[in-house]
Amino acid sequence: MNVNAKLTEKIAFGFIGASIFTVVLFVCIILYYIISNGYPALSWEFFTSMPRNRMMEGGIYPALIGTISLIIGSMLAALPFGILAAVYLNEYAKPGKIKWVIEMAINNLAGTPSVVFGLFGLALFVRYFGFGPSVIAASLTLGILVLPIVIRSSQEALLAVPMEYRQASLALGVTRWQTTKSMVLPAALPGIVTGSILSIGRVAGETAPILFTGAAYFLPRVPNSIFDQFMALPYHLYVLATSGIDIEGTRHIQYGTALVLLLVVLGVNSIAILIRRHYKKKLRLN
């Protein structure tokens, strides 16, 4: 019986080992294909030149600028509201029904499919507000998409600020808002920045929400106002890979674009991790 139990354990652990190996293998294979095939396409010119010859040659400049505009626009929309919503939930809201409903809404918003956000952006921003397909409509849509991420990470950051700081500040005769503004938010800032940076990665990579809210198939210029349409990296990749004029012939541009997307997302995530590490030491949180 003992031998049996030992054997079962061996088999079970064998399966578990095989499965974690598979998962790691997935990561490696995906990274390997994108990096090894995309690397040769990267050059200074790739980043700074317009697509040429019906997108069969040239670079990704307008798509890069478009994605950067989306990042800026959506952050401007999501950060203030997300951070203040987290402040409300952590510093002001009493536990109870209202707080529960808000938390529930955040979870549901976080789980709502991105294509649904696209439909919503189309109905509300493009049509109802009359922005038309534009940078601003897409930015606001993406802003709503990442709002739950910003709220969640800001909440976590606020939670990491020790209760004693708040008590000490209140005991000095400082109001709750002043305590939040001068004590709690500065101490939570690195955590909040980390979370926001993670949401930048999300904004850069999302495609479905911008499909109907302003992404252009091809636009030989950068957007000249927030009410202009734009090209964006993920949509550009989608277009080249599925409906370009020469799908096979532009593989190198596709891999290059995929790699740029990957680098943006991974780069942004690594920066977030570094910031967190740096400030954790400095603030001695945890």
Binding site: V23, V24, F26, V27, I30, L31, Y33, I34, S114, G201, A204, G205, E206, T207, A208, P234, Y235, L237, Y238, A241, Q254, A258, L261, L262, V265, L266, N269, I273
Partner: peptide
């Protein structure tokens, strides 16, 4: 964190792959 990389890859890149 290595597995977390998977969470960061944009869906269009998965689609492309």
């Amino acid at each position: 964190p290595f597995i977390e990389i998977l969470a960061g890859i944009p869906s269009v890149v998965y689609g492309f792959f």
